[in-house]
Design a protein around this nucleic acid. Sequence first.
RNA 1: GGCGUCGUAGCUCAGAUGGUAGAGCAGAGGACUGAAAAUCCUUGUGUCACUGGUUCGAUUCCAGUCGAUGCCA
Length: 314
Amino acid sequence: MTVIPMTTDVPHQLIVITGPTAVGKTSLTIQIARHFFTEIISADSRQFYKEMRIGTARPSKTEMKAVPHHFIGHLSIHDPYNVSRFENDALSKLEDLFSKHHIVLLTGGAGLYINAVCSGIDELPDPDDSLREGLKELYLKGGIAALLDRLKDLDPDYYRTVDRANPKRLMRALEVCITTGQTYTSLRKNKPKPRDFRVIKIGLFRDKEDLAKRISDRTDAMMAEGLLDEVKSLYPFRHLNALNTVGYKELFQCIDKEITLSQAVEKIKTNTRRYAKRQMTWFRKDEDIRWFHADDVEGISRMLDAGCWMLDAG
RNA sequence: GGCGUCGUAGCUCAGAUGGUAGAGCAGAGGACUGAAAAUCCUUGUGUCACUGGUUCGAUUCCAGUCGAUGCCA
């Protein structure tokens, strides 16, 4: 029997499985996890919430039993949460898991969250509720112009490069400047943080028609499973950020009689397609991702079993 | 069968008293550092149903054909 000793010269490996929504990450990741007798960390910013089960395509009970999953349903929609917290939570969970496994899997479709785990994000202050309220107020009263005015003062460099039409970006930058007394620009180092594990990123793709079909089928399946009831039960909380989510917001509109049920279902499908598209534009930029067709289990296994990726610098 | 209305971008529709056309949605591309399934940006050439006629010129006017639809029979 060969036991690989847990020493520093054998690097821990984080295998990241990513790709657009509905591409088939869940089942493939479970297969790989079983192959390596390891566990899965989810980087899916909506599967975190315990109240959102059907609409987020959470892995089934059987699937979760087959392989331990982490960060699925561990939060309530009422809990404030963000990437930075996820970075911390995931890192400490990884430390724990790496004491038992050489290889751990991370899967999900939120590129920002994955990057936070793999290379970290800058130290910036968490949002402050009352300040955020104030900025929202400023925006409502004075519009984008008011935000821009303020930013021009507080961080002229960022003012030059921001997307000036994006209120959320502007408000966040202002928030950081005001709470720290420093410019947002100066705090954004954009330097990867060292990690004591290696990362390999696997991207799953499918052609457009195939993905669209899967999205459509999955949406129908969610409806058959009772999405509408799930959404109804969350209706009182529809203004929470967690519920500003594809599959939920459209059905809220239906409950509000703004659109019909079949219109809502169609809208869920097109919004999911658009989400998948946005994910792809994010992932395309990431040169570390090795792409495989989502059905190419053979190819992925071959690559992983060859183990040559373990020798990659990283 | 008669009379009327309509036929313009993938969809819903606007428009030009005749000089080959434009919105919304969809689609496509992009951005992205604590709200990220979020938020935001860019992007519109299409036999203007078909066939003739009038005209320097017709998608626009006229006639016919076909299709849709409404009313009357």
